[in-house]
Simulated scan of single mutants.
Amino acid sequence: MVSGLVIALGCVMFLGGFAWAAVLYRPYTVPTESMRPTVAPGDKVLAQKISGSDVHRGDVVVFKDKLWGNEPLVKRVVGVGGDTVACCDKQGRLTVDGVPVDEPYLDGGGTAAQEAFKATVGKGELFMLGDNRSVSQDSRVHLEDAEGGAVPASDVKARVDATAWPFGRMGMLPTTSAFDKLPGGGQSPQGPLRWITFVVIAGAALIFGGAAYEPLANALRRRR
């Protein structure tokens, strides 16, 4: 009876964890090299479904904008409505409202951009850059568009929390404190994916443990 209850609890946790994830998260495949080394082309990522109004500087997001093409894209938010984003200062850093930003996630740890630019982000819009600045087709390329390089926050579909595949890159996305000193703070807290993973693993352990309990108990009784 005890093993049956343990298995039942494990099934509830295991299936409930997957259901919880299905409600909150969507899988995406990263199409380009623009976000190296944070995510690589072909990586399968898990992104929490959110409203664009909940996006903060430093977040890695999935969005789709008609001026940028037909496919969902993955970029990092470096500016929100009202920000003036510029590059570069004397140390080759990005600045937001004149405040220099150290970006440890940049590919190769180089300068924030190869060419100077400056843009003021409109209300309800987001300025997007890739972590691999040398190849990323991002807000810098779209500065002459009607949106001035930014995209409406409503275009954001989800915020990336983790890499799910390949196995060697599996794990939560590294967080950054790069934008913490700016008014309004920096990156959003990560979603509940760690808890969901714990619930699923714990559920699986209970299922296997409950299933093994009776045979092990019977074997011990026979030995005695």
Rank of each mutant, 00 (worst) to 15 (best):
V2N: 11
G4R: 14
I7K: 05
I7D: 06
A8C: 12
A8P: 09
G10K: 06
M13T: 01
L15Q: 07
L15T: 13
G17A: 06
F18S: 12
W20K: 04
W20M: 11
W20I: 04
A21E: 11
V23C: 04
L24F: 09
Y25V: 04
P27M: 05
Y28K: 02
V30E: 01
P31N: 00
T32R: 01
S34W: 00
M35P: 02
M35V: 02
R36S: 01
K44F: 06
V45P: 01
Q48R: 15
S51C: 03
S53K: 14
D54L: 07
V55T: 10
H56K: 15
R57C: 01
R57I: 01
V60E: 00
V62T: 01
V62M: 00
F63N: 00
K64I: 06
K66A: 15
L67G: 10
L67T: 14
E71R: 11
E71G: 05
P72Q: 04
V78F: 01
V78L: 02
V80E: 10
D83S: 07
V85H: 01
C87F: 05
C88A: 07
C88P: 00
D89L: 04
K90W: 07
Q91H: 14
G92T: 06
G92S: 07
R93E: 11
G98F: 08
V99N: 12
P100N: 13
V101I: 15
Y105V: 03
L106I: 10
D107K: 15
G108P: 10
G110Y: 03
E115C: 02
F117Y: 13
F117V: 03
G122W: 00
K123M: 10
G124A: 04
G124C: 08
G124N: 09
G124M: 08
E125K: 13
E125M: 12
L126V: 11
F127W: 13
D131K: 05
D131Y: 02
V135T: 13
D138C: 00
E144Q: 15
E144T: 14
A146E: 14
G148K: 02
G148W: 03
A150V: 01
A150W: 00
R159F: 02
R159E: 06
D161N: 13
T163L: 07
A164R: 05
F167I: 13
G168A: 12
G168N: 12
G168Q: 12
G171Y: 08
G171D: 08
M172F: 07
L173T: 02
P174F: 03
T176H: 05
A178W: 03
P183C: 11
G184R: 08
Q190D: 14
G191L: 11
L193T: 09
L193W: 13
R194C: 09
T197G: 13
V200T: 09
A202K: 06
F208K: 00
G210F: 09
A211K: 08
Y213T: 08
Y213N: 04
N218T: 14
N218Y: 07
N218M: 10
R222Q: 15
R223Q: 14
